[in-house]
Every structure is written in structure tokens, then in C-alpha cells.
């Protein structure tokens, strides 16, 4: 959110339609801004910049750059409290996912998420399986795991996520 007056002609009035076309974003325009989501939100309780009601409002108003470029879309803990309580069935948690997906398509990814994706690409999971972990598994009678990412690579390639990651690498 910028300072001062919002210049209406700088807003993207088509943004809301783009969001409603994205899976999870369909019910965006139902929101009547009651704030039940915000009052339910455990993230908002500790982080003022995360306010689901405001994010929805900004999305409807077309404040695309502010929404996609901010940290806050990525802060949702997906606890679903807002979604359960929303009287208008806005399916807010899914809506946050929709916004994240749009951001990624625009090439905007939170660095934390990006580095996680890189880990997955490297190890096939969010962290590397080391000897210690395998020994523990052995004790429990579980087969050992290899850090094999072949399948993940295929998935990343066919979905195009690899390109986003490569782009991020470049930017770094």
C-alpha cells in the first residue's frame, strides 16, 4: 500500500476477473468486508501487515502490484480458520493460494518459497535425507531413503516450475 491518495486510473480493474478465473478465487467478489477472517486470523494477531480482509479489498479494487509484490500473501499459515467462519463462503485460504499462483506466474516468488522449491528439486523433498535419518529409520524397521529427485525434476519440468526457479537463480 502506497502513501497518500490512491490514483484510480493506476489501478488494474481487470485484476479481480483474473483472480476469479484462477481456481480458489471464484468467490472473491462475494466478500462484504465484515472482517470475520481478520478477527479469526492467528497470523494477523502477531503481524499487522497480514489482513485477509484488506488483501481481498485491494484485490477487488485492482491494487494488483501492491497485492502481488507484498510479502503478506505468502504469510498465510493455511490454518483455514477464516475459511470456516466466513459468512460469505469466500474460501479465503484457497483465495490466498490463487493469489500466490498468480504471483508465481508473474514471476514473483517469495525468496523463502523459492529456496524451498530448490531444495525439493535437489533432494526430492524439503530437506536432504542424511545417514542420521536413515539410521533412525532402520531402528524403526523402515527402509532407508535415497535423496532421489528424478520424479520431482520431471514434475517441475512438465509444470514449468523449473523455469521460475532458474529465473530466480539468475536474479540472484
Amino acid at each position: 500500500m502506497g502513501e497518500g491518495t490512491i490514483i484510480v486510473k493506476e489501478l488494474d480493474s481487470g485484476f479481480k476477473y483474473r483472480v476469479t478465473e484462477e481456481p480458489g478465487g471464484e468467490h472473491l467478489m462475494r466478500c462484504y468486508a465484515c472482517g470475520t477472517c481478520t478477527a479469526s486470523c492467528p497470523v494477523r494477531a502477531i503481524e499487522e501487515s497480514f489482513n485477509p480482509r484488506k488483501i481481498i479489498r485491494m484485490t477487488i479494487l485492482g491494487m494488483k502490484d501492491e497485492v502481488l509484490n507484498s510479502d503478506f500473501v505468502w504469510l498465510c499459515s493455511t490454518c483455514y480458520a477464516c475459511q470456516e467462519r466466513c459468512p460469505q463462503d469466500v474460501v479465503i485460504t484457497e483465495l490466498m493460494n490463487a493469489l500466490k499462483n498468480i504471483a508465481v506466474k508473474e514471476g514473483i516468488v517469495h525468496p523463502g518459497i523459492a529456496s524451498q522449491a530448490q531444495e525439493i528439486l535437489k533432494f526430492g523433498r524439503v530437506y536432504e535425507i542424511d545417514d542420521f535419518a536413515n539410521k533412525k529409520r532402520e531402528k524403526l524397521g523402515l527402509p532407508s531413503l535415497k535423496s532421489d529427485s528424478k520424479e520431482v525434476e520431471t514434475i517441475f519440468k512438465s509444470t514449468g516450475i523449473d523455469k521460475y526457479i532458474a529465473k530466480l537463480e539468475e536474479e540472484k
Binding site: G35, T38, R44
Partner: peptide, 10 residues
């Protein structure tokens, strides 16, 4: 528990 939506405050 509410968010006063006119203030934006919990």
C-alpha cells in the same frame, strides 16, 4: 473477538 473494519484494528 472482532476486527473493527473501519479502524482496521483487532
Amino acid at each position: 473477538k472482532v476486527e473493527d473494519t473501519l479502524l482496521g484494528e483487532l
